[in-house]
Amino acid sequence: MAGIYDLYGITDTDIDTAARLLPDALGLPFEPHESSFWGDYYSVRTENYDEHFSLKENYNVMEEDWNWSQFKHYPLMLEVSIDGKTMKRARELEARLLQTMGKKIILLKRVEFAS
Results as ranks from 00 to 15, higher is better:
residue 78 L to P: 06
residue 75 P to V: 00
residue 74 Y to Q: 04
residue 21 L to N: 10
residue 71 F to M: 05
residue 66 W to G: 03
residue 80 V to S: 05
residue 21 L to F: 10
residue 13 T to V: 11
residue 80 V to D: 06
residue 3 G to R: 05
residue 3 G to Y: 08
residue 110 R to E: 11
residue 3 G to C: 12
residue 93 L to Q: 06
residue 107 L to T: 03
residue 108 L to F: 07
residue 12 D to R: 13
residue 61 V to T: 06
residue 41 Y to V: 02
residue 67 N to T: 12
residue 28 L to T: 05
residue 39 G to V: 10
residue 9 G to C: 01
residue 7 L to R: 09
residue 33 H to F: 14
residue 96 R to F: 08
residue 104 K to A: 04
residue 12 D to Y: 15
residue 93 L to K: 10
residue 97 L to N: 00
residue 93 L to H: 05
residue 78 L to K: 00
residue 83 D to I: 11
residue 65 D to I: 03
residue 34 E to P: 04
residue 55 L to S: 03
residue 37 F to N: 07
residue 17 T to N: 08
residue 34 E to H: 14
residue 93 L to C: 10
residue 114 A to I: 15
residue 92 E to W: 07
residue 30 F to R: 02
residue 5 Y to A: 14
residue 68 W to N: 13
residue 30 F to T: 03
residue 64 E to Q: 06
residue 85 K to V: 09
residue 94 E to F: 05
residue 74 Y to S: 01
residue 81 S to K: 12
residue 63 E to L: 02
residue 89 R to F: 06
residue 76 L to V: 05
residue 8 Y to A: 10
residue 41 Y to H: 09
residue 6 D to P: 01
residue 18 A to N: 01
residue 75 P to C: 00
residue 112 E to L: 01
residue 87 M to L: 12
residue 38 W to V: 08
residue 35 S to Q: 06
residue 36 S to M: 13
residue 39 G to R: 08
residue 31 E to F: 08
residue 68 W to I: 15
residue 52 H to F: 11
residue 75 P to M: 01
residue 43 S to F: 12
residue 28 L to P: 03
residue 114 A to G: 06
residue 71 F to K: 07
residue 8 Y to M: 03
residue 75 P to I: 00
residue 27 G to E: 09
residue 10 I to L: 10
residue 86 T to M: 06
residue 50 D to G: 06
residue 44 V to M: 03
residue 38 W to I: 08
residue 105 I to M: 07
residue 42 Y to D: 04
residue 21 L to R: 15
residue 66 W to P: 02
residue 36 S to C: 05
residue 100 T to R: 07
residue 14 D to T: 04
